[in-house]
Design a protein around this nucleic acid. Structure first.
Lengths: 198, 198, 198, 198
DNA sequence: CATGAATGAGCATTCATTCAT
DNA sequence: TATGAATGAATGCTCATTCAT
């Protein structure tokens, strides 16, 4: 009698909205992305949106959390590796790969534009922390193995890695001539040089 | 009847609004910065605002243009120098100094959050171009003098300089532990190393 | 194919919803009582609700009609009585007893709050008429027997009886110190005094 | 320069909205009274409404408070009187006079329909308390002078006075045949009889 | 019958902008 | 020129109701 809720269908619908949200946030920024526009893009009615996300901010948060989860998964897949520097360079390179999806840099810009909203600032901080945590482990291992410079603390090196990937994302977003594919190699080289020490 | 406008008084008033705008945009983002709040901060009535700026976007544009003008002035002050690398490092360092004013990184975030608005994108592009133009001159001179690596085109090196300063600004904005003062020296060192070539 | 409806099961389900409706209307008022909340309280799915009542207003109407029917039954049970004043006092006292169910006064308030809806106004008028009809019979008999004052028309006396019971219900709802049990006796005494004439 | 805010104009506008609110709340109930309808009735734009009242609930509250203030003023005007029973009967009669404004009973119904909203419940309680306070003083004086029965506490007598006036208001609202003017005298007589004791 | 996902009309509220004084 | 009251378009969100399963 009671039709069991189809969780797959629900998850798919949810993802459909997440995808539309990612696209529209990237295109228009947070405030420019009206729920109406997101719904139109997702091909759903306005009421449906709120069956899946209580508020517009919750959609943003969900997207952010998806990113954080992905970071963690990626990290889990690297356990067992014994070449810390190689791992770090791969991690950095994967940021460049993310940047190739044109929506990513736009989305990042959109989110930083509403960082003054407390809940969003928190989620962003959590995402930042997750990334740093992963990087920190491998930087420390790299230092232990003598592959990474030790004149700076691991935490500080991590900040600079994030600085480089963040700046990279930003450039891709802003500068037409600066493409993720074209600059990927130079990013890796620059990071390698930076990690070895000037 | 028409009281002759006192241009000085007018300019002062205008600056007062610009300052309030810079502060509030930085604190709340573009959309979070209501004209009402900007007016309250500037100590003026809401009607007065629109005597000085036709729209809220025009205020943002004016602030941006002020920045662009400053970049040009700074560049003018450097003419005659004969040490291109030194000049470049000074230019980069001055970004770190700007970042020490807590409103700057916040303002930058606010602006990038509304980059999808065409007029703002244009102004941002103009600002970007002004910065790049200045840097380009000195990078080329540096290359001519052998102070700067020549395995990459000057334009590409400039992109990376902007990447580094942009990433730096972002980090200062987001990461409490990452201060403009504390990291300034490392920024200069990293840029020097990058410009010399790995 | 058409599974023969089990009318008993259906009636039970219906009563379950009526009960939940009574409770939630009383707690939240008509508009505050969302169908979702009523369904949750009744332990049914939102779709099921509309198998039993075409609209939310219909549920309210059904509750009202149940009350009207109860009034009529109560009246039927009094036929044959020969002490009109006694009957009237019992009728009034039974209002006080109803008021002891905390949901009744709350429900009455909720309903009067949406009296501007025509169908509800009608049902309320019907309920009012039913009550008055019963009272009218016994007031007239009381007047005929000399137990009830005759300086006012029977209809007017009935209005005042309703005024007193209505005011009583309201007080119980609003005033914590005014309890149905505690004031019941005084209600009866006041009504007796009023019916005899000042 | 700074045009002094014209407080009279502001107060007038405010009253205009209060008046429209009173009317529309009475006609449609709280939820049925959309801000759009209130604005149309007041002859103002929707934005203007919110210059005067932060929320729709605040308008209701303001109306309620106006009533409470009026109660207090009326009470102040009675100081010095030496005939407590006369004062009480006048107070009761003035309720009947209020009821002659057809909007009052409708408004009362509307308000009681949203009593589950905490802030409104509070304001209603405050209004109730103000009325009772006034009545209590004169009931006590009446008891002291032997004009009012002493077999019931003053507080309880007050509850019953409120019961009678509340029931009266309700009847006027619901029953076409029951008019404030026509029943006013009987109300006074009934209250007099009640206060003297059966 | 029972369910709950989907719908979209409708609502309170915000905010940039205008304009009479 | 300075002011702030007035405006109404635009938005996020709620909720009664429908319908495929």
């Amino acid at each position: 009698m009671a039709r069991p809720v189809d969780p797959e269908r629900r998850a798919a619908r949810r993802l459909q909205i997440v995808d539309a949200g990612l696209t529209v946030f990237a295109e228009r920024g947070y405030d420019g992305a009206t729920t109406a526009r997101i719904c139109r893009r997702a091909g759903i009615g306005s009421g449906t949106f709120f069956h899946y996300f209580a508020t517009k901010a919750d959609l943003l948060l969900a997207i952010l959390e998806l990113g954080t989860a992905e970071t963690r998964e990626r990290a889990a897949g690297l356990e067992g590796r014994t070449d810390p520097l190689g791992v770090l360079l791969e991690l950095v390179a994967s940021t460049a790969d993310d940047a190739a999806d044109a929506r990513i840099p736009g989305f990042v810009r959109a989110v930083t534009g509403v960082m003054h909203v407390p809940r969003i600032a928190e989620a962003l901080a959590a995402d930042d922390a997750a990334q740093r945590e992963v990087l920190l482990v491998w930087v420390e291992r790299g230092q232990a193995r003598g592959e990474v410079r030790t004149d700076l603390t691991a935490a500080r090196l991590v900040s600079w890695l994030v600085l480089l990937t963040g700046g990279f994302l930003e450039r891709v977003a802003v500068d037409e001539a600066f493409t993720a594919e074209g600059e990927r190699e130079l990013l890796v080289a620059t990071v390698r040089s930076f990690l070895r020490g000037g």
